[in-house]
């Protein structure tokens, strides 16, 4: 996987899936849900987020529902990577499954200000705050996850492995 570099949005602990996209939009098409990302938590987000931005968050990011539209909406608005102190398990799996890189790094909260530039080197599991030169180690991703991310998601893995021929 390549190195990812992007402008940072900072979030706190326990950002739940309802805060990412409210349950109200669970049955909505992605074009609709992306208008409501972080609507109550960070109302400016949808207007100001740019393609290639990165999220830096605290503990238990993505806790709550198994709804895949949470990571899918973040990916659809342009988020390229999420770094968090820790992730809720299902969110983490879902993000990998849809090809959105996620990585946990102990001690990451407080190391970035909103608007800083973060650089994530997956092969070395290294995170750098390009703005102030600070760096820290992240937890390496397993080979299984890298394969899925490199393919662009688990459905692409399925397609390549002959899902279509079954």
């Amino acid at each position: 996987m390549d190195v990812i570099e992007g402008r940072v949005w900072v979030f706190g602990d326990n950002v739940d899936t309802d805060a990412i996209v409210a349950g109200e939009y669970l049955d909505a098409p992605i074009e609709e849900t992306i208008k409501h990302v972080f609507a109550s938590l960070k109302p400016d987000f949808v207007n100001e987020v740019r393609q290639g931005d990165v999220i830096v968050a605290g503990k238990n990011f993505g806790c709550g529902s198994s709804r895949e539209n949470a990571p899918a909406s973040l990916k659809a608005v342009g988020i390229k990577c999420i770094i968090a102190e820790s992730f809720a398990r299902i969110f983490f799996r879902n993000a990998i499954a849809i090809g959105l890189p996620v990585i946990s790094a102990l001690g990451v909260p407080g190391r970035f200000q909103e608007g800083d530039t973060a650089s994530i080197d997956f092969s070395r599991s290294m995170i750098v705050n390009v703005t102030d030169g600070d760096s820290l180690h992240a937890e390496p991703l397993a080979d299984e996850m890298i394969e899925i991310l490199d393919s662009g998601g688990i459905l692409e893995v399925l397609r390549r492995h002959g899902g279509g021929n079954q």
Binding site: S65, I90, R93, N94, A97, I154
Partner: peptide
């Protein structure tokens, strides 16, 4: 199961957990 509360079945001693729909598609196919 495609629901985070799939862990409910642990009451009967099953190892059960939630996944998303893409992973479910993969798991059903393979």
């Amino acid at each position: 199961g495609t629901d985070s509360h799939t862990c409910t079945y642990g009451a009967l001693g099953a190892a059960s957990c939630g996944i998303g729909f893409s992973e479910m598609a993969y798991a059903l196919a393979t």
